[in-house]
Nucleic acid binder design. Structure first.
Lengths: 212, 212
DNA sequence: CTTGACATACTCACTAGTTCGTACATTTTA
DNA sequence: TAAAATGTACGAACTAGTGAGTATGTCAAG
């Protein structure tokens, strides 16, 4: 496999590509697709602009690769949650907490998704890798809701996608709209105390909604 | 005032500026600040590129004017809601419904805010007009919450800004993330039935949260 | 084990086209 | 006539993308 090489400093295609993707992720997340500069990316890499075109073909190709990589990352994360043993309410709280922490910990991902929405998800549509994303969260939520209803803990039958949206919207918004919201209401959304309060609030809101 | 002029076809600075702003709003909302083209805007106006620079100085100046105008619009909207006569729960439902409908009806505004967040709200910060926005919604919510608690309808004392965020996040997300969410979950968020269900859901969620 | 052929990885310099912004000339209004 | 408003044409700088050649590593044959 020739995984890594300690001393030989040259010809390490895998590392070169990773390096480009790392830098490009930051550039696009910071400036958007149109605002991101290929030259700026090239300068920050260990390699040259020519290599970007060698590996990714075009600026859009690079952007797409960045996007796919970002989605692949969260997919992994979502998949290894084991919630079926927990009681419904607690399972939901864990799931919400995970979503909350994930968005909080990955502002770059949140920003890339925002940017992709500005482009009407055009690149996502073109990518099989992303479109065929196994949306396991929905099944997880569906199972929790079903258990909750049969067990009499939840009073309401809700659409799992709607519930996912309710949770996602809040967690995502906190990060995506951090700057405008923070400016208008003079509030720092990344303060630990605020974060904890918000995490509790969205969990309580979802659960009391299901119990009502 | 010289509001409008039926026949005289020339030199109508107010109308020229409005025209430029209309076109620019669409361009920036569609392509972002970096992606928006001054030449493209100029072509779609009744006037020329020269006039854009004459009135707005620079591309950024134009963008800022667009942003300020968009915020001024909603401010007006928020201010003439009369909710103090309604019982707390109903008042909240009307407020939520209004927020929901506003975001739904103004995707351009939602997109501009998204774009501004990508730029870390940098332009907003530079604009006194926006920064000093009278955030009357918060007072409105605070009043409703207070009435609800004293009246015994609401069991919980909540921060009005947090409640505003809970509402805003959901309504905003539905519009801002329409494309990525719609693509992943194969769901059209602008369908009337879906819209009505979501509107009911966020209202129920907020109210049951406050009652719990 | 050494030579040489070949594919992959990489470098440097360059270009064609775009994009913001402006100099200059002209018309309209007061 | 002065000031404000407008149109045309142009340029300087930037930006995505490429042409052409070089280095590196692998592997087969001698």
């Amino acid at each position: 496999m020739a995984a890594k090489r300690e001393n030989g400093r040259k010809n390490d295609p895998q590392r070169t590509q990773e390096n480009i993707l790392d830098v490009a992720t930051e550039e696009f997340a910071t400036h958007g697709l149109a605002g991101g500069r290929v030259d700026a990316i090239a300068e920050k890499t260990r390699t040259s602009k020519r290599m970007i075109y060698y590996y990714f073909g075009s600026k859009e190709g690079l952007y797409l690769a960045v996007l796919e990589r970002a989605y692949r990352k969260i997919r992994t994360l979502e998949e290894d949650l084991q919630l079926s043993n927990l009681p419904p309410e607690q399972a939901l709280r864990v799931l919400i907490s995970t979503t909350f922490d994930h968005d909080e910990a990955n502002p770059d991902f949140v920003r890339l998704v925002s940017i992709e929405n500005i482009h009407h998800a055009a690149h996502m549509l073109r990518s099989d890798a992303i479109r065929d994303l196994n949306v396991s969260v929905i099944e997880t939520i569906a199972a929790i809701l079903a258990r909750g209803v049969t067990g009499g803990v939840f009073a309401r039958t809700a659409d799992p996608i709607d519930i996912h949206m309710l949770i996602s919207a809040f967690c995502f918004f906190r990060v995506s709209n951090r700057y405008t919201f923070g400016t208008i209401f003079r509030r720092d959304l990344s303060e630990p105390a605020t974060m904890e309060r918000h995490k509790g609030m969205i969990a309580d809101a979802v659960i009391s909604y299901l119990k009502a």
